[in-house]
């Protein structure tokens, strides 16, 4: 399978020479095109640091990260903006929509930043809103939407520009269980029907069970990896719980 993301011996240190903390200690892994991958780990395991390095919000201290074969750790200034704009889609824990813009405009913003032809924008925004069942709240402002609607709006914003890779940071963290389920089903659908490549960071086994593969991280190192294979979601969920329990007990 063609790889979209390839991390090689990624390291990240904080602090100075006398007091060094290794947040990432030689992490290597790969995400293929069309995969839906979860990174799981406890608080402080380094999973968010890893996501920040991939999204170029933070810079790796050592190692290389390749997206579509291009090393993004060497990027600077304009290249970084262009990379984030053209290749990445973000879904944050709190939807991070702009309060002053309507739902429609929040989604369209991702396209206007890319310099998309205004004629195309309408079709694309309505298309993705239909897919994620939020067409009826497009004219609402964020404070008029439910938490689940906001989160799906954020997913639509990430997806509308058809990025190489969607990065989701604890997307269900702030949602009740019903909304969380709806969002995860939406993400699965984006993955299956539109072949979106999604990398999701979570500490929630239920959320992880929607993925095709779960990578566990502990103390800045990869610990193990689970593949869903042909098993159904429930069975996969049981296996994830076992692994989490094993990791915690070790």
């Amino acid at each position: 399978m063609e790889s979209v993301l390839l991390c090689k011996d990624v390291e990240k240190y904080y602090g100075n020479r006398s007091n060094l903390a290794k947040a990432l200690d030689g992490v290597s892994f790969e995400v293929g095109r069309g995969e839906f991958v979860a990174i799981m780990g406890a608080s402080g395991s380094g999973k968010t640091t890893l996501l920040n390095c991939i999204s170029t919000i933070d810079r790796a201290s050592a190692g290389h990260i390749y997206v579509n074969g291009v090393d993004i750790t060497t990027f600077s200034g304009k290249q970084l903006s262009a990379f984030r704009r053209d290749q990445l889609g973000f879904v944050f824990q709190d939807a991070n929509l702009l309060d002053t813009l309507t739902g429609y405009e929040n989604i369209a913003l991702a396209l206007t930043i890319m310099g998309e032809d205004p004629k195309e924008i309408d079709t694309k925004v309505h298309g993705i809103a239909q897919t994620l069942s939020i067409a009826d709240v497009l004219d609402h402002y964020p404070h008029q939407m439910s938490g689940g609607q906001k989160q799906r709006m954020a997913a639509a914003r990430a997806m509308v520009k058809k990025p190489q890779l969607i990065l989701a940071d604890e997307p269900t963290g702030a949602l009740d269980s019903k909304s969380a389920r709806a969002l995860l089903e939406s993400l699965s659908m984006l993955n299956e029907e539109l072949s979106a490549t999604i990398l999701m960071v979570t500490h929630d086994a239920f959320a992880a069970s929607y993925c095709g593969r779960v990578t566990f991280i502990k103390d800045g190192k990869l610990f193990t990896e689970l593949r869903r294979g042909t098993s159904d979601r429930k069975a996969f969920f049981e296996r994830i719980i076992e692994t989490v329990a094993f990791m915690g007990g070790e």
Binding site: I57, G77, S81, R84, R85, L88, L109, A110, I113
Partner: peptide
């Protein structure tokens, strides 16, 4: 957020 969405400085 705008910067994260890829807007240049």
């Amino acid at each position: 957020l705008l910067r994260q969405l890829g807007a240049t400085r």
